[in-house]
């Protein structure tokens, strides 16, 4: 009769142990950032892989989201005769929520999964063990640059996303639907505050970047060392990181006291 209870207990202990390992791992990655030698070349490569190669995706998605927001909000706002508020509505929703969150989800799919797969397959092919044999810490050599790269890239891509989103809504609102260009931008500038909105956006994007860097590299580092394990780890990165980003977004929004 106590069997199921025991199994539940074992499950809980295993979960907590996993979280503990993840936290220790984060500490190790953090320490590796401060320890010489500085792997600046590898960090640059990681920024290239997850940042430069994501630019096209982010710009296109940002512009598309802006276009859609422009159309949809114009449709809603015109029912109240408040089309002129399009700039405010687009700016606030992009800066506060859509920019950081959608960038986080896109980068998770585009770069986070790649980082997991890369580290995972290095583990499956025993390259990480090979590094250890040569007295090179794989966390310092392989994991840290990729985690740091993801964390650096996120706020930059998020700002790009927002820029293109505002531009996309401008195209629809001003060029297509004939709103006044000056009032679109001046409403936007009046409504957006640096501390309330822009800083919140940058903090969110940075937190999402750190979360993604942590989860993606951990899933790769801890994956089962075979092909199925790597594919499971990659899927799990996308699912876990997406859910964590959405949860963190709620927590940060609530803490900021909108």
């Amino acid at each position: 009769m106590l069997g199921p209870v025991r199994r539940l207990g074992a499950l809980a202990v295993a979960r907590i142990e996993g979280l503990g390992r993840m936290t220790v791992f984060l500490g190790q990655v953090g320490r590796a950032m401060l320890r010489p030698p500085v792997r600046i070349g590898y960090v640059v490569r990681a920024v290239y892989d997850s940042g430069v190669l994501s630019i096209a995706l982010i710009c296109a998605s940002g512009a598309t989201v802006g276009l859609v927001l422009g159309l949809q909000l114009h449709n809603t706002l015109s029912r109240f005769g408040a089309e002129e508020s399009l700039g405010t509505a687009v700016g606030l929703s992009l800066i506060r929520e859509l920019g950081p969150v959608l960038t986080g989800l896109l980068v998770t799919g585009r770069a986070g999964s790649a980082a997991t797969a890369e580290i995972g397959s290095m583990k499956a092919s025993e390259q990480l063990d090979g590094l250890r044999m040569m007295a090179i810490d794989p966390i310092h050599f392989v994991v840290m640059p990729r985690a740091l790269g993801l964390a650096i890239v996120m706020p930059l891509l998020s700002a790009l996303f927002i820029f293109f989103g505002i531009f996309g809504a401008y195209l629809i609102g001003v060029e297509v639907l004939g709103l006044d260009a000056g009032s679109y931008l001046s409403r936007l500038e009046n409504a957006v505050d640096f501390r309330e909105d822009v800083l919140q956006s940058l903090v969110k994007a940075s937190v999402f970047g750190i979360l993604l860097g942590w989860i993606a590299t951990w899933r790769g580092y801890a994956c089962e060392p075979h092909a199925v394990g790597v594919s499971r780890a990659t899927t799990s990165t996308v699912v876990t990181a997406s859910v964590c980003i959405l949860l963190a977004d709620y927590v940060l929004t609530a803490l900021w006291g909108v």
């Binding site: 800066i95 790009l160 640096f194 822009v198």
Partner: peptide, 12 residues
């Protein structure tokens, strides 16, 4: 882009 958001749009 961050600078544009902060200085122009955010009014910092």
């Amino acid at each position: 882009a961050i600078g544009w958001l902060s200085l122009r749009i955010g009014g910092l």
